[in-house]
Nucleic acid binder design. Structure first.
Ligand SMILES: [Mn+2]
Ligand SMILES: [Mn+2]
Ligand SMILES: [Zn+2]
Ligand SMILES: [Zn+2]
Lengths: 156, 156
DNA sequence: CTCATAAACGATACAATGTATCACTTTGTA
DNA sequence: TACAAAGTGATACATTGTATCGTTTATGAG
């Protein structure tokens, strides 16, 4: 009964995506054209892997217009290939979605992003939802921590 | 061992606050001055109770400068008296923090906000955290749903 | 391989949500 | 009452996007 989690929350999804690693192919399968710009942006995101901000991508790809970078990210979000995570300071990072439903950890010092999955918490959330008025369509969750590197860092 | 949750995540806290209902008194106790503007803003927030956006408050209080509205909200957030919640559309709402640690539900149709608390999920999160490298300082979590009113609404 | 067309693009303007600055006002206190 | 510190408002600026619109490009029908 995991299927309820497949329903995407437009901006904040943590939904599964097809296990293919070729994002371009996925976009093409959905009817989108393969353009130089999309190849460039997707290529960079796949190489990064780690979290990134939209502005960061725009700066590193001066050949691609800013609007197009945002448009492409929006497209990938809608297609469930990216997760958008709110940092505690108010900014946002994007990160490649893995195949399975998951959540993220964020270091409040350095912003490093990690992933985790835990079936118990999912089961409990499902239970909470079934006791609730209305129809659950999704959830989001982040753990904030001070990462090991920051704990071991030479103070402030 | 609930104390770890008292550590505030600057923008996103869901932390407990003193059970007094007089927010002004709390601010004064922390050394802040009691000004006309703060009384006005706090008064309105206490009357509202429901979620609100910063801009909404600014518009309804033309006697108080926009910057001051934002400053006061920031102050109340820092003091743990407000929760800031990200809506799935990218906007933010603020809502009065209750005394106890809790989380929110958001209707993806109408934006209505609800609250819930569940000790099991908290216990599980604590367990997850203790198995994790680094030191957990907090978490956030929202359930997205279609509220009963929206389910019963006359279609689109 | 054309070529027409829909899709996508870049430049730019605009919008929303805050934050920084700074001259001025108010508050709390002695 | 007077003073210093805290707070305020107007305004400028910053960030993170979205809308517009004239131009370019990808695609696929012929
Ligand atoms: Mn989950
Ligand atoms: Mn919790
Ligand atoms: Zn760190
Ligand atoms: Zn609703």
């Amino acid at each position: 009964m995991f299927s309820s989690y497949r329903l995407l929350i437009p901006n904040f999804n943590t939904a599964p995506r097809p296990p293919s690693s070729d994002l371009l192919a996925i976009l093409e399968d959905q009817g989108y054209r393969s353009t130089y710009q999309r190849r460039t942006v997707v290529g960079m995101l796949e190489r990064k892997g780690d979290g990134f901000t939209a502005e960061e991508v725009a700066e590193e790809l001066p050949k691609v217009g800013r609007a197009t970078v945002y448009r492409t990210i929006k497209l990938l979000l809608k297609a469930g290939m990216l997760c958008k995570l709110p940092l505690p300071n108010g900014a946002h990072k994007y990160i490649m979605a893995r195949a399975e439903h998951h959540h993220h950890t964020v270091c409040v010092r350095c912003g490093a992003v990690g992933e985790f999955r835990n079936s118990t918490v999912e089961r409990v959330l499902r239970a909470i939802g079934s006791d609730m008025p209305g129809e659950i369509v999704g959830h989001r969750m982040e753990l904030y921590l001070i990462c090991r590197d920051c704990l071991n860092a030479p103070a402030e």
